[in-house]
């Protein structure tokens, strides 16, 4: 009988219950894989956001299925739709109420730049009031595009020097 080679894998007989890693990697691993979204659904993009969350596209595969309508429990605000000037202060206040660390995805043309609404009533891009991490093009974007944005955001979080930010 050929015994399996255990040298290359984690061997708890030798190493005990200890895993050695960088603290950054551990913190980022935790942050990356349970990124609870705050669904700031303001227009038709919110319908695609719902599609992204439901069975066919299933955002749960990326650990972001827990839509939190309380900003205090959310990590990532997904601004899905047209932000009017009347709504803009509320978006900013909800962003302020989210606890650190927090990220923002601007979903679709309207949230990214005002989109087709070159108008007196529409905020010309949500990045004027909150810092945006990922912009998604489309009107509205397909659910795949939003998932891609989430993966891009996760990549960004993985590369963040979290420990330095903690101590700073």
């Amino acid at each position: 009988m050929v015994s399996p080679n255990t040298d290359v894998a984690f061997d708890n007989k030798i190493e005990g219950d200890i895993v050695i890693s960088r603290l950054d990697a551990v913190i980022n691993w935790v942050r990356t894989n349970s990124m609870w979204p705050m669904p700031m659904g303001l227009a038709c993009c919110a319908i695609e956001l719902m599609g992204t969350a439901s069975a066919r596209f299933d955002i749960a595969r990326f650990g972001a299925e827990v839509m939190r309508f309380s900003p205090r429990q959310a990590d990532c605000m997904i601004v899905a739709g047209t932000v009017t000037y009347k709504m803009a202060p509320h978006v900013r206040r909800i962003y302020d109420q989210m606890s650190e660390p927090k990220w923002v995805i601007a979903m679709g043309a309207c949230a990214s730049s005002g989109g087709m609404y070159r108008s007196y009533a529409t905020l010309q891009g949500v990045d004027r009031i909150v810092p945006v991490d990922v912009y998604v093009s489309g009107c509205p974007p397909r659910p795949e595009a939003l998932l891609d944005a989430l993966i891009k955001l996760q990549d960004k979080v993985k590369k963040t020097p979290s420990l330095r930010n903690l101590t700073a």
């Binding site: 000037y85 009347k86 803009a88 202060p89 900013r92 206040r93 005002g114 609404y117 070159r118 108008s119 007196y120 529409t122 905020l123 010309q124 004027r128 009031i129 909150v130």
Partner: peptide, 18 residues
């Protein structure tokens, strides 16, 4: 902007759209 606090913090204004 309608909210003075937010306007102070973000320095955003209601602009004429490009």
């Amino acid at each position: 902007l309608p909210d003075i606090e937010v306007a102070d913090e973000t320095q955003a204004k209601v602009i004429s759209a490009p």
